[in-house]
Design a protein around this nucleic acid. Sequence first.
DNA 1: GTGAAAGCGCTAACAG
DNA 2: CTGTTAGCGCTTTCAC
Lengths: 342, 342
Amino acid sequence: MKYVTIIDIANELGVSKSTVSRALAGDAQNVKPETMKLVCETAQRMGYRRNEAAVNLRRQLSKTIGIVIPEVVTSFFMSFIQWAQRDLRQQGYRTIIAVSNEEVTQERECLQMLEQCRVDGILMSVCHQSANAALYQEIMSRGIPMVFFDRQVCGVEASQVHIDDVSASVFMVEKLIRSGCRRIVHLLGPEHIGNATDRLRGYREVLEKFKLPYNPQYIVAGGLSADEGAQAMEEFLQRGLAFDAVFGFTETSVLGAKSVLQRMNFRIPDDVSLCCISGTTLCTLVHPTLSAVEQPTEEMAHTACRLLLEQLATPGQCRPQTVVLHGEVVVRESTKAVQAQA
Amino acid sequence: MKYVTIIDIANELGVSKSTVSRALAGDAQNVKPETMKLVCETAQRMGYRRNEAAVNLRRQLSKTIGIVIPEVVTSFFMSFIQWAQRDLRQQGYRTIIAVSNEEVTQERECLQMLEQCRVDGILMSVCHQSANAALYQEIMSRGIPMVFFDRQVCGVEASQVHIDDVSASVFMVEKLIRSGCRRIVHLLGPEHIGNATDRLRGYREVLEKFKLPYNPQYIVAGGLSADEGAQAMEEFLQRGLAFDAVFGFTETSVLGAKSVLQRMNFRIPDDVSLCCISGTTLCTLVHPTLSAVEQPTEEMAHTACRLLLEQLATPGQCRPQTVVLHGEVVVRESTKAVQAQA
DNA sequence: GTGAAAGCGCTAACAG
DNA sequence: CTGTTAGCGCTTTCAC
């Protein structure tokens, strides 16, 4: 029931606890090799586990990074975490994961918890572009570096890494148009997520470029979840407008829309092309009727970790910087596209 | 840079740190209401965050539960975590998530880390049914309760919760046969995962029941990942045997197989039915050609948490118990099935 | 109702 | 090379 402490080991061996501490820390400079070996073996034998709480308290730092993500449905965030953990662990950092569930209050609680655990830094994907901005500032002013990834934040002086949503959107929509689509439904993301605005902007830019009319009737609030996407699709169908493509904000919402379309016997991608800016490669792998610009998850994780570690290495020294990455494009050409090219 | 401590608050107010501690803990019995209010307000104003490391050290417990999962690709584990976190948080527990990446050594490191963090209990899904069994026993003998979920463990006296893999498998395969399939490929899971053996057993039981011949040629090692599933499928195709269904161990591996089949212009589910025992509802939602018995993720999480909390409440008192849940079935009937019924 | 003091397990000066 | 000592921030007796 009780854990073995360095004092237990010290008593067992008749040495002082400092010696044990030094030996266990591998301080070859100040411990005789044989003492070292003896201590380590005894620790092993007695089932010693060093108490992180005690170490953190003493050292005044935790060697722990907090990661806050908005949801766990999309594999993007999980994949990001995996890459980030690898990088951070390599630098001797542990990670604590906290999920805000897309709610501002839960996000506050997550951050509070991370502060209580005295994390050395935070990787964060926000659930709202501005609601908790003051809190972010407060945390950073306390000397805890934060790096924001994927979801953009407004009004915060901090390092960020995200993809170029406008370009990604432009690329995707242009691809649709070139493959013969003219009437493109856009499942708009929530306005409190900055990326949504950018993607709408991209959508509009392409229409202008091709001198196609912009009809607000084709823009539907598609939310984030599959349910919201499905609902949005039904809402649009009731408007009775002709359409040949759906460009969704989330992978999840466009898949929700897809289920509605299939129920209505639309053939995909022959009748309707589906596309989105996707979380991860897995998406288009398993949804072979979906076109997507894919986020470079691994690169984003590396970059975010690099930015954070830099700030950790030079406390208070480096200016915040924003890194913008570019997605990879995976497009499923519909038969319509083939006709259009002919 | 420096955090505010209760001593800072005590000095600010000219009271002792004990009083501050009591007030912050909400000990109304021993603190005058006005003092209480004053302390709390000051704490708020000064941006106090209580140091969890110090509390844990003092209290000799962490109010933290560790969750170990083998991978983060499947949404099942993420979904499980979400439910579990909700239950545990409600009981005042924090959670630490650790990922073993299906590797025995990484799993050891995870557990070691959790012990170092002095977690009060562990929810665990193993990457190997027996490799670390001794370690599990050691941890439990130290008084840290463990509950194993989803993946079965061998030779360990501990509480477990998983689905009835044999029944699930029987149900799925029987469904295939009743819908007209006769030659069913089975993508077998790794032998170090107990559930794989059970599912194969289910497969064989059904064949016997229907007096169909068992041909080992139809069993292919399908691994866990999409790549492994694809490779297994290709391997099977080279055998040149006729087949009309694929029953995979993992959602992921059967989707890998699917990509190969599609490349070969098989029509799904008309030429070939695909099915598996799936991680979560999302799976069949987004893969409308896949039939599956779905794990009751939420129920599994609730059950696992309940078992753990029971052990936490009565240390060393409750005997390990195994709970077996049943999956829900979602079947996509192929046109072949319709023909068979006619 | 409040304060003084001890101590959780560990590290890091400082002496020897 | 090793031992002694002083805390890290907090809770919790025990006095008053």
